[in-house]
Amino acid sequence: MNPAARLIIQRLLLGVLTLLVVSMLIFAAVEFLPGDLAEATLGQEATEETVAAIRRKLGLDRPPVERYFVWLGNLFQGELGVSYANGRDIVEVMGTRAQNTLFLAGMVAIIATPLAVGLGIIAALYRNSYLDRFINLVSLSAISIPEFLIAYLLIVTLSRSGMFPSFVVIDETTSLISRIYQSILPALALTVVVSAHMMRMTRASIINVLASAYVEMAHIKGAPKPAVVVRHALPNALAPIINVIAINLAWLVVGVVVVEVIFVYPGLGQLMVDSVGKRDIPVVQACSLFFASVYIILNLLADIGATLSNPRLRHGR
């Protein structure tokens, strides 16, 4: 069998196993947290009777292992269930939010990836020049500044003047153009954060390759400097760059709660945090399965990309 195809099948099977383990871990973790949905929703108002009534209604009085297998059984029948908190269908609750999250992540990926890789190549090309130092200074600062501060800075500079809205209001009826316009500030904030990582990795791995013998050979045969970097060094430096891009993209899907909160962006992050706070296990499970799937798929894509970019791995032995 083609080694790439074998890798994909192997990884997909492993992925399913990973999801199963993730679902168990998350379920156990939420179980270990103090309190349950009944106590979390009622908070200070909780009395024994009302707590007991809610538990009976939702089946929270059943042992945890039983509840987990009931949930798992439903999952295999394609049933994600309903939210404990308000009885809404989870597919409906998550659907639009997942779309919003993917939209924002996609927008950032489209802006950030070419920007970061391009800057990384330039920095490597003109290593130790003032341009390189300037790019490094900016990207290191961007890594060091917490994302919420970047978000507030963007609001103060670009929103108070009325250029862009400081918060996002989108639903199914919002047009694509309005969606893009409203999402510019959150997308910019996230771009600043992820570009820096990706740019640093691009620069470092190209510089690493530039030290090898075949690059010196290319120089000696008289190839111009940009051609050496782009045609000889970059393909061999791709594997780590692809990996870092994949990890950053995954982070864009799962880890942007802070930016979501500041720009009131209705994504999955806030849903997950809210649901953990309320111990709404079905929603937490569904969110974490989605997040884990994103990680698994992006990692898989990264590995495939790395394999394809490396002739030694591509052809096997």
Partner: peptide, 20 residues
């Protein structure tokens, strides 16, 4: 009427100050 949920107080403040 339109109610928008702002859990972050700074975001709420910005929204009012920018006229949103």
């Amino acid at each position: 009427i339109e109610l928008i949920n702002f859990s972050d107080v700074a975001a709420r403040t910005n929204a009012l100050l920018s006229g949103g």
